[in-house]
Design a protein around this nucleic acid. Structure first.
Lengths: 155, 155
DNA sequence: TTTAATTACGACTAATTTTAACGTATTTAT
DNA sequence: ATAAATACGTTAAAATTAGTCGTAATTAAA
């Protein structure tokens, strides 16, 4: 349960790196992969995805790179999950309709659906800015109350 | 992110079946596997684990079976996770100490550790009784506030 | 006391998912 | 032109998960 996808990790690392470097400085995938000691290909890939999804802006060409396109206050962890992994769910039968061939005999479908919703809410209430806040100890200030992290429109 | 382990699913199915059948009636693994149309071996296995962990009581022999040994109000979803999967974490470096060979270059260790804690709290606040309550719509009443699901001592 | 039903548990195989690597194309500053 | 970077599809390897098989131990009942 709840193991973090490696791609998500790399995304967070990249965002953290960009955020810490400068408000809006340009950063290359190589720079990030060197810094966090992760395979270049994978870092490059997730940054491309984040650019596709408008979280980053990419500039191609010789002195290209990426920069933030959104205030991380307005992007939730849930949104990052969806960007990188696409729509997911606790169990397949929730996301893919009609996949579960024994919905009649399944006695936990409704509980799991409800749990899935709650969990999504949990992640929706964590803005990336808060998750990544402060390299070391500041990150402990995460709370899950109230509403934050407004929806991104074009993701 | 957050895909539910199949074993956990089966555990929940078994618990749901037991709970719905009778407060404390005896139930066999076969009965459960037939009812929820899951492979007998796997159902049997998770029920054995739950018996080991004192969530169920098992009776061996010809007319043996399982029954609840705990009020599900006092057992959290988090505890079930730990029973079935053992200690887990969002990322390996949290659980296994010293596994992460580049802790120095990792810029998200602290945020993820914090997130991991929050998530554990989330699951600790969901008693199995609440998760499994009401076959159909009643399960929507899950909330995550306040403290519930006291610790089990011998797990 | 044999038989049948059941829990108990380890080991193995198969399937799926995840992760990483490769190859090639495109863009653009120099 | 060239070099450095993004873009992206395909494939291969690794790891994890899911399921099966085999066998032992326990116990009620015939």
């Amino acid at each position: 349960m709840t193991k973090l996808n490696r791609k998500i990790e790399y995304s967070l690392m990249a965002l953290q790196y960009i955020q810490q470097r400068q408000p809006s400085s340009k950063v290359t995938a190589k720079e990030v992969s060197d810094s966090v000691q992760a395979p270049f290909d994978v870092i490059a890939r997730v940054m491309q995805i984040m650019a596709q999804k408008a979280l980053l802006i990419s500039e191609q060409g010789a002195s290209g790179g990426y920069r933030l396109n959104q205030d991380l206050k307005n992007v939730s962890l849930f949104q990052l999950f969806e960007m990188i992994e696409g729509p997911t769910a606790l169990v397949k039968c929730i996301s893919e309709d009609g996949v579960c061939d024994n919905e009649t005999s399944c006695n936990v479908a409704s509980p799991l659906k409800s749990l899935n919703t709650k969990l999504n809410t949990f992640f929706k209430n964590i803005p990336l800015s808060e998750l990544l806040a402060g390299e070391d100890s500041a990150a402990d200030s995460i709370t899950t109350n109230g509403e934050r992290a407004k929806d991104l429109n074009h993701v």
